[in-house]
Nucleic acid binder design. Sequence first.
DNA 1: TAGATTGTTAATCGATTAACAATC
DNA 2: TAGATTGTTAATCGATTAACAATC
Lengths: 213, 213
Amino acid sequence: MADSQKISKQAMHRMPYYVECLRSLAAEGVVTVSAPVVAEKLKLNEVQVRKDFAAVSKSGGRAKIGFPVQELLKDMEKALGYHSANSAVLVGAGSLGHALVSYRGFEEYGLRIMAAFDTQKDLIGTVIGEVPVYDAAGISDYCQEHGIRIGVITVPADEAQEVCDMLVKGGVQGIWNFAPTYLDVPETILLQNENMAASLAILSRHLRERNRK
Amino acid sequence: MADSQKISKQAMHRMPYYVECLRSLAAEGVVTVSAPVVAEKLKLNEVQVRKDFAAVSKSGGRAKIGFPVQELLKDMEKALGYHSANSAVLVGAGSLGHALVSYRGFEEYGLRIMAAFDTQKDLIGTVIGEVPVYDAAGISDYCQEHGIRIGVITVPADEAQEVCDMLVKGGVQGIWNFAPTYLDVPETILLQNENMAASLAILSRHLRERNRK
DNA sequence: TAGATTGTTAATCGATTAACAATC
DNA sequence: TAGATTGTTAATCGATTAACAATC
């Protein structure tokens, strides 16, 4: 029953799937839904879903009936911060960075990329979508002036730490790191590593095992 | 000492960071390295690193000396499948899909995107980088004819299941799903969900907590 | 009422961390 | 030898799953 604090990282990873599931139920006009039903749809353990729901739901569910879809959805989106916009900058306007900047989909989750930075002369001064690309030298100043809270790192591994330091100096509170490298950040800053290399490795490993048999 | 099978998912997620760390050590000309040293650099537990190394290293380490950097690197890259190319197709050539196709970085990890698919008429027939975009109707046939092993899904949530089914029908063995939705796949197929919404939610949540105090 | 579903307490499981003997 | 580091066995921790009483 919405104890605010304690949602485990694992639970946070399941939340987006609940949201998606609840939205599609809402679209079908379903008014209430029970944990076992959602668990069945998502192939998850029933108790797990119940606990996850309990962790975000303000008013709780009702025995025999379940949870009101719309209300649970709202509570969950709030817990996930989907509606609280966080200003961000992205550093490294290479192909991945370019992609992420032009992908507007993150806005739905509260990420608003205000500016991009790069060191490459021919990128500086250009505009991606509606996002301007500035000289990387100005990262810290820009972040301070605009109260930027999140830095997205899409530079090569060997430049990531330097960029990270500049972002920290600029006062960002969270860093979303796409470089496959370890970053050293002060304890107060949340580092979220997006580990695509690991995902690929897990896939690759599975295929190898499979094709050996 | 390289028991092949049992590398946990969590361990797999740490591997890319080891690889990056070992590469940079190798570049500095370092010949051997011990688990405690790497643990210190990566801010990980020493025993954990030792166990992870033991899981991939063929010849094992030597007391007081540690592991030969080059050899361990080779063993690890092999365990991760970095050098075993897997052919893939990507479905959904929207902005995220476009980004991933044009990002050549995944080739290093063994993912070779051979073709992209979309339903949008004005995208079909175009070329992204060197990758052609075909009509989504032909997914299954293409995969079968070309022995495609991995399908990458970057379509909106409500189209993902349909696309997934076509990929499965085409005989892919692994699916890398970027849509924030649950997919139903046969047990034999490995589904790897790339959960960017969750990453953002975790960041967002942290910022909110922090700014309340 | 009977039965489904909730919330919660207890048991299980897997991964991390600690302890320690073996080795170079 | 002494001390660092390995590999391994045992203890701890956290998350998942099972069990069950309370509720509608």
